[in-house]
């Protein structure tokens, strides 16, 4: 847990490249200022902070991110995206991390098991299912 061995140059890691391709962002541009995390309204519910997501990616550790809660806690509010000093679209990178799993036909939310579905407005259901199902 507190030790990670780098086995190959993260720049060559296939999944890192895939994330860069899906998001269209150069994740290596991040210089760890932390402004994404300090401004993130959902950060307190995350297990990996947005800035840490980028450090994991820069070290080629995609596994940790695929098992993390963070991409599924991101609300795509774009606060980080508009404030990032180097212009990274972090929301798109979070989406890429979700897509990596959703594209394997993975349901993060099961529409049939949502509690109190009748009280929820259509806008909530549509947006949720669009983000969390393939």
């Amino acid at each position: 847990m507190m030790k990670y061995t780098i086995k190959e140059d993260p720049h060559n890691d296939e999944r890192v490249r895939e994330i860069m391709e899906i998001s269209g962002e150069n994740i290596f541009a991040c210089y760890q200022c932390g402004r994404c995390s300090s401004g993130c309204p959902m950060a307190e519910f995350m297990d990996v902070l947005p800035n840490q997501v980028f450090m994991f990616l820069q070290e080629g550790d995609v596994d940790t991110l695929l098992s993390a809660r963070t991409p599924w806690v991101c609300a795509a509010c774009f606060t980080c995206t508009v404030r990032c000093p180097v212009g990274l679209d972090l929301a798109a990178v979070m989406e890429a991390l979700r897509e990596l799993q959703l594209r394997k036909n993975y349901d993060y939310v099961d529409p049939y098991r949502v509690e109190n579905r009748e009280e929820l407005p259509p806008i909530a259901l549509v947006s949720n299912f669009r983000k969390f199902t393939p």
Partner: peptide
Amino acid sequence: NECCGSYHTVDKKEF
């Protein structure tokens, strides 16, 4: 201009 938590209201309403 801060987010309300958006669509998480479906599966993570505590947040």
